[in-house]
Amino acid sequence: MTTTIVDAVKAARESGDYQSVLESIPYMKFLGLVVEPDAAGPICRMPGSDHIIGNPVLPAIHGGVVGALLESTAIMHIMWSHESLHVPKIINLTVEYLRSARVVDTYAQAVITKQGRRIANMRVEAWQADRTKPVAAAHAHFLLPREEE
């Protein structure tokens, strides 16, 4: 039997390395996301590459992909914060696009704004070279799976 996501999260809680959790989620791996540990929660880095471009004229990263980075970062944060061994379900997401995202490394970090028993309210920000100039921000709600085991 292959390693399940639950096993990957348990191992990550021991080692502090969440990259294997991320890589067990196909779409996050497809985007080439890299987890960079931080005391305030995982920072997800998305390397610039041709396949994430939305507007080839500018060029700029696809707005949907920026949304996907923000959502993925929120998911990783929830799993890192010991709120869930499973991938939480997204309920809704509002993305604000603040600046054109150039095709370079893009970073994102999430905070849990409000943590209920079943629902997590998240705020996520994405930035490029300068953290004080975010390229996008999101609010999202996630449904936390009922605890396991």
Binding site: I5, I25, P26, Y27, M28, L31, G54, L69, V87
Partner: peptide
Amino acid sequence: KLVGNPATRVLHGGVITTLIDS
């Protein structure tokens, strides 16, 4: 490759976001 939860094989929400934005 677009799955977001390997346990259920449900697509990642970000894929839907990208599809809708497109």
